[in-house]
Amino acid sequence: MELADLVRDEGALVLATLVRLTGSLDLAEDAVQDALEKALVTWPDSGIPDNPRAWLLVTAKHRAIDIMRREARRPAKEALVEVSDNSDNSDLLALIFMCCHPALAVEAQVALALRTLGGLSTPDVARALLLPEATVAKRLTRAKQKIRQARIPYRVPADADLPARLTGVAATLYLIFNDGYTRGTPLLVGEAIRLARLLARLMPDEPAALGLLALLLLQDSRHDARLAPDGTLVLLRDQDRSRWDRAAIREGVTILGTALRRSPARPDRYAVQAAIAACHALAPAYERTDWDAVISWYDVLLTIQDTPVVQLNRAAAIAERDGPAAALPLLDALGSLESYPWWHATRAELLLRLGDHRAAAEAFTRALALELSPPQRTHLEARRLLASG
Score class of each variant (00 low, 15 high):
residue 37 E to F: 06
residue 38 K to W: 14
residue 38 K to H: 13
residue 38 K to G: 10
residue 39 A to M: 12
residue 41 V to G: 03
residue 43 W to I: 03
residue 43 W to L: 04
residue 46 S to A: 10
residue 46 S to L: 05
residue 47 G to R: 07
residue 49 P to M: 04
residue 49 P to T: 08
residue 49 P to A: 06
residue 50 D to E: 11
residue 50 D to V: 05
residue 50 D to G: 11
residue 53 R to V: 07
residue 54 A to W: 12
residue 54 A to H: 14
residue 55 W to F: 12
residue 55 W to S: 12
residue 55 W to M: 06
residue 56 L to Q: 11
residue 56 L to S: 08
residue 57 L to A: 07
residue 57 L to S: 08
residue 57 L to R: 04
residue 58 V to Y: 04
residue 58 V to T: 03
residue 60 A to R: 05
residue 61 K to H: 05
residue 61 K to Y: 06
residue 63 R to M: 11
residue 63 R to Y: 07
residue 64 A to Y: 07
residue 64 A to V: 04
residue 68 M to Y: 06
residue 68 M to C: 12
residue 69 R to H: 07
residue 69 R to E: 07
residue 71 E to S: 09
residue 71 E to C: 02
residue 72 A to W: 13
residue 73 R to H: 13
residue 73 R to N: 09
residue 73 R to D: 07
residue 75 P to G: 10
residue 78 E to A: 03
residue 79 A to P: 02
residue 80 L to Q: 04
residue 80 L to Y: 09
residue 81 V to A: 14
residue 82 E to I: 11
residue 84 S to T: 15
residue 85 D to W: 11
residue 85 D to F: 13
residue 85 D to T: 12
residue 86 N to H: 15
residue 87 S to V: 09
residue 88 D to P: 10
residue 89 N to Q: 14
residue 89 N to W: 13
residue 90 S to Q: 15
residue 91 D to F: 14
residue 92 L to W: 11
residue 93 L to E: 12
residue 94 A to D: 14
residue 94 A to H: 14
residue 94 A to I: 15
residue 94 A to S: 15
residue 94 A to K: 15
residue 95 L to A: 13
residue 95 L to Y: 08
residue 97 F to N: 11
residue 98 M to Y: 07
residue 98 M to K: 11
residue 100 C to T: 14
residue 100 C to M: 13
residue 101 H to D: 15
residue 102 P to C: 10
residue 102 P to M: 08
residue 103 A to D: 15
residue 105 A to G: 10
residue 105 A to Q: 12
residue 106 V to K: 15
residue 108 A to N: 05
residue 108 A to C: 03
residue 109 Q to N: 15
residue 109 Q to M: 09
residue 110 V to Y: 01
residue 113 A to W: 02
residue 114 L to F: 00
residue 114 L to Q: 08
residue 115 R to L: 00
residue 116 T to K: 04
residue 117 L to Q: 03
residue 118 G to R: 01
residue 119 G to N: 02
residue 120 L to K: 02
residue 123 P to Y: 02
residue 124 D to I: 00
residue 125 V to K: 00
residue 125 V to N: 01
residue 125 V to H: 00
residue 125 V to M: 00
residue 128 A to N: 06
residue 129 L to V: 01
residue 131 L to V: 00
residue 131 L to D: 01
residue 133 E to G: 01
residue 138 K to D: 00
residue 138 K to W: 00
residue 139 R to E: 03
residue 139 R to N: 06
residue 139 R to L: 07
residue 140 L to F: 03
residue 141 T to G: 02
residue 141 T to S: 05
residue 142 R to T: 03
residue 146 K to N: 02
residue 146 K to D: 05
residue 146 K to E: 08
residue 147 I to W: 09
residue 150 A to G: 01
residue 151 R to P: 01
residue 152 I to V: 11
residue 153 P to V: 11
residue 153 P to I: 11
